[in-house]
């Protein structure tokens, strides 16, 4: 019953903008509240930029989900970059290797309901986030 997942390639700045726009469209379609839409799009923006900057580009897949009680959105960010050696450290506020504010990963985690990260040095990084309707 779910619509087909939509996939975007992230290879440039413009693609990050496209990810934001796609996530917003889907967030509106599943009727997330305005604040939740904003949180999700912001998280997607942070993570898509990570995919581009740290992962050397990759793909983003946006999917509508339903757990029987609530509808939601699941977004997967996949890259085949260098991976993250110490996930706990990377999830610490203020930790950065890219000269940013170090809030991308840890901040994005606070903006979504579910956050899964699968990474290994040399094997790339895959982050899946989910936001449910209230």
């Amino acid at each position: 019953m779910n619509a087909e997942p939509q996939r975007l390639t992230v290879a440039s700045d413009q693609d990050v903008v496209r990810v934001r726009q796609l996530v917003r469209t889907v967030a509106v379609a599943v009727k997330l509240s305005l604040v939740d839409q904003t949180k999700l799009v912001t998280a997607a923006s942070e993570l898509a930029r990570n995919t581009l900057v740290y992962g050397g580009g990759g793909t983003v897949e946006v999917d509508r989900v339903d757990n029987g009680r609530r509808a939601g959105i699941r977004i997967a960010f996949v890259d085949s970059g260098p991976g993250i050696a110490d996930v706990n450290l990377a999830l610490t506020d203020g930790y950065t290797t890219g000269g940013g504010l170090g809030l991308g990963l840890s901040g994005a985690r606070r903006l979504v309901d579910e956050f899964d990260i699968d990474t290994e040095p040399g094997r790339g990084t895959s982050i899946t986030v989910t936001k449910w309707c209230r």
Binding site: L34, V35, Q37, T38, K39, T42, E46, D93, L103, S106, G107, A108, R110, L111
Partner: peptide
């Protein structure tokens, strides 16, 4: 909504 998100983002 942006302000609320920024607070959550830290």
């Amino acid at each position: 909504a942006v302000a609320i998100t920024l607070v959550e983002l830290g």
